[in-house]
Nucleic acid binder design. Structure first.
Length: 431
RNA sequence: GUGCCUAUGGUGUAACGGUUAACACUGGAGCUUGUGGAGCUCUCGAUCAGGGUUCGAUUCCCUGUAGGCACCCCA
């Protein structure tokens, strides 16, 4: 056999390996997502990462599917895509069993999602994303609830109010603004794109482009978009004061205040990229300048089920990725201290029969103590060293002496203190 | 797809264009044999690839590759 170059030990571009310490952090994050979602009455669902490509073509358009997804043809000639987002899947599932499900429907899932792009901070090719969706609620209670879930997750992870901000806007309000400014649909679309880039451009350059698109109306638009609250916004566009979107936004802000979510404000320059949003949209941002990406984003999408031939169904949901969230925790010093699941490491002093150790370990495991056994005949120091390196909190040395006397010394590695216990007392020590 | 930055043992760093590429940690072996988590000794292990400039390249230049960051896009 010819000598082949050794294989790389790097994970595939844009993906991560989760060594136990990393897995611990991931589980910490996903655990908070689960706990809080379930606290609000959301039920977990799941689906395959493989979906028929047409599911995304129907909604996202050819370009995104062709250039930004993992798409291939299977052996049966079917076009297959690794899911780049969960919303089409959940819409498909809900549409499929619409008559059998109990509404309002509260569902969540934490799928791994894939996109073919250049990896960068906060954005990889595979990530985990919590999806929280509520179906069948027309009123603003739906928005208030899902935003509360997101804020609750941030809180559970240790974030304080000043660490993040939630921004709100409304698609209907923006459309009304475009009409009020006398813009055509095409102009409106262009201006929307431009609004999305407002923070990335020089103010003067932005104004120039805005004027190119909207003409005289650009000045009003710019002033209105700079507003940090609804009142100021409406001063620039008084004709919109009676628009239903304004009422909805006010309801959401009031409802969140009542629910204890205070770091939230209206921001007319918030534009979520996708077209399927029909009402309130929202995003959550880190206040630390290192993390410029949204930590989560979502909104109301009442029309999405129509692609499955189903009737309209009111729906509000958001997605929250693990990558940006991890960056957030890191910057704010909120990463948890690693704790292995293993609590006890049994060291074998030379000569002790392994059967006796197995029996003891089995007894402890039956009592719920996560126990690993070192069956090597290494020096005790090396065995203890292994336990310490794995950050296992307790060690138990088992040799002839202990087996004969029935007395065991449990050593806590962090402090070095030893506790002498009989065999019967052992399991209770770990409770 | 575009731009900028980076590339030295497993990891983190060092080396004015000039000895045998240095140091720490990690890994392996040993000394000590029931608590030696340590200490000591020994040891494995690297200049991303190819080309160019030069008496001489880890160092300068070009190309490629890989990674990071940003743009595009953002589900």
């Amino acid at each position: 056999m010819a000598d082949l170059p050794p294989l790389s030990t790097e994970p595939y571009k844009g993906t991560r390996d989760f060594y136990p310490e990393d897995m611990f952090v991931l589980n910490h994050i996903l655990g908070a997502m689960r706990t809080v979602s379930e606290r609000f009455g959301y039920l977990e669902y799941g689906a395959s990462p493989l979906e028929s490509t047409e599911l995304y073509k129907a909604k996202s358009g050819e370009e995104i599917v062709n250039e930004q997804t993992y798409t291939f043809t299977d052996r049966g000639g079917r076009e297959v895509t690794l899911r780049p987002e969960m919303t089409p899947t959940v819409a498909r599932m809900v549409a499929g069993k619409r008559r059998e499900l109990a509404f309002p429907l509260r569902w969540y899932s934490i799928p791994n999602l894939f996109r073919y792009e250049q990896p960068q901070r906060g954005r990889l090719r595979e990530h985990y994303q919590l999806n929280v969706d509520i179906f069948g609620v027309e009123g603003s209670e739906a928005e208030i609830e899902v935003i509360s879930v997101a804020a609750g997750i941030m809180q559970t992870l240790g974030a304080r109010d000043e660490d993040f901000t939630i921004l709100l806007n409304h698609r209907g309000l923006m459309n009304a603004m475009m009409a009020e400014l006398g813009l055509s649909e095409e102009q409106g679309r262009k201006l929307s794109k431009l609004i999305d880039r407002k923070n990335k451009m020089e103010a003067s350059a932005w104004s120039a482009v805005a004027k190119e698109i909207a003409g005289e109306a650009a000045a009003t638009a710019e002033k209105a978009l700079a507003s940090e609250d609804l009142g100021t916004f409406l001063e620039h566009l008084p004709a919109l004061a009676a628009h239903p979107a304004v009422t909805e936004l006010e309801e959401v802000l009031r409802g969140l205040a009542v629910s204890g979510v205070r770091n939230v404000r209206f921001d007319p320059s918030l534009m979520r990229g996708f077209d399927y949003y029909t009402g309130v949209v929202f995003e959550l941002f880190d206040t630390a300048p290192e993390n410029r990406r949204a930590l989560f984003g979502g909104g109301r999408y009442d029309d999405l089920l129509s692609i499955f031939g189903a009737d309209k169904l009111p729906a509000v949901g958001f997605g929250m990725g693990d990558v940006a969230l991890r960056d957030f925790l890191e910057v704010h010093g909120l990463l948890p201290d690693y704790r292995p699941a293993t609590r006890l490491y049994i060291c074998r002093a030379d000569g002790a029969p392994s059967e006796a150790i197995m029996a003891l370990a089995a007894e402890l495991r039956r009592e719920g103590v996560n126990t690993a056994v070192d069956f090597t005949s290494r020096k005790l120091g090396d065995q203890i060293g292994s336990a310490d390196k794995q950050r296992i909190p307790y060690v138990l040395v088992v040799g002839e002496r202990e087996l004969e006397s029935g007395t065991f010394a449990v050593k806590e590695l962090a402090t070095g203190t030893e506790t002498s216990l009989s065999r019967e007392e052992l399991p209770a020590f770990f409770r």
